[in-house]
Design a protein around this nucleic acid. Structure first.
Lengths: 213, 213
DNA sequence: CATTGTGAACTCATTCACAGCG
DNA sequence: CGCTGTGAATGAGTTCACAATG
């Protein structure tokens, strides 16, 4: 019944992985799953699965395993994805457009409710099937009005920090940052960075090593 | 003069971060930089910077610091980004289109030289300013012809594994995987996954924690 | 004498091994 | 009996602290 004893960040990432696997298991009609099976499916150690879950409670039945449906519910609750999240997108380039049209977000309860750009050429244009691009200057107002809880930054690098500041000001405490700049945010605001180029750098490094270069 | 004593994966990620910061420093006219300054800029510990670099050689001058230009060259060499890399894109949806048009890739030596899709509607259509969408069945042939070294998967989840298999067969040993499925690849092939939904799950978890929910 | 490079100490994360229990 | 839950052991990664040195 562990509660707050310092949870590894990697545990959260794996929880997300477990969740996805549980969806597939449920879809395939499985009712129960053992830590060993989950571990095998997710390519981790069985003790790791049990330890990860153990940080948050006792969800299993000894001698039997975990109830797929119930474990899903628990993991959803832990990750706070047992609800919908309104997102606001800032920066409507190719990437921003792709994000708005991304199928998986709404399927998982992540919904874009507004999109912003500072380019007068773009403002007012429709985006995807439900949105219209709005002026970045309206961000604070719209954030309140639409109850935006997550800000997604897909701007050029120079605009990332100013946008992050505006998002904070607008009372948004969670930012998904696709720009190449790390951003600074006030205490209490959380940021996740997704940086394609870093991943490519890691990839080429590893390829070089794998080839013994 | 450390050579192969087990380099942490996180070190490579930071190296990529250092590299980007060095570019900015050079642009701003700096000739030298200390581990302390780099550390401050990259929000890490100064000893961490020195240790990370120390795995690969002695690049600094005691009492002085690191030559910005020279350190850049060394880091580029380590990451194997002191050359260009030909990439092939598979799956031309919104995301694939965004990737092809991504400015930063060519600027860093990562170039898409071919794009593939299995949808007859899409095959033959132009993509970006230089490419034409080709039939996925031509993958092996084109990979050889164009010397593709990195495969980028931006397909729906169900196609990810078959595509990964085809890429391996085609002699491509590095894969950047944007699909929601983890893929299995033969020994000697390296994969980096970029999964937006996992990052959103981590974000909501951390937001929940930050808000004390 | 300021700053690097690095063994040693420490902190964090994973895995083991088995007691606890349905 | 089988599988979970968890303290203890191991392993990995980070930070400290200082000797080495241009």
């Amino acid at each position: 019944m562990g509660k707050q004893p310092k949870i590894p960040k990697a545990t959260i990432k794996r929880l997300s992985l477990y969740y996805r696997r549980l969806e597939l298991l449920e879809f395939d009609g499985y009712r129960m799953v053992s830590s060993e099976k989950m571990a095998w499916l997710c390519q981790v150690n069985p003790a790791q699965v049990r330890k990860d879950l153990g940080y948050f409670g006792e969800f299993g039945v000894r001698g039997v395993g975990y109830d797929v449906r119930e474990l899903m519910d628990q993991v959803k609750r832990i990750l706070a994805v047992n609800r919908t999240w309104n997102m606001g997108l800032v920066g409507i380039g190719h990437l921003g457009t792709a994000l708005v049209n991304h199928q998986n977000f709404p399927a998982r309860g992540f919904t874009f409710v507004a999109a912003f750009d500072s380019d007068p050429q773009k403002i007012g244009r429709p985006l995807g099937s439900k949105l219209r691009i709005r002026d970045s200057r309206e961000l604070e107002e719209v954030a309140r009005e639409k109850d935006i809880r997550i800000g997604v930054i897909a701007t050029p690098r120079a605009e990332a920090q100013p946008v992050a500041d505006r998002l904070s000001t607008a009372g948004i405490h969670a930012i998904l940052n696709f720009s190449r700049n790390r951003i600074s945010v006030p205490e209490g605001c959380v940021v996740e960075n997704i940086d394609f180029t870093i991943r490519l750098d890691i990839l080429t490094y590893r390829l070089k090593e794998a080839l013994g270069m």
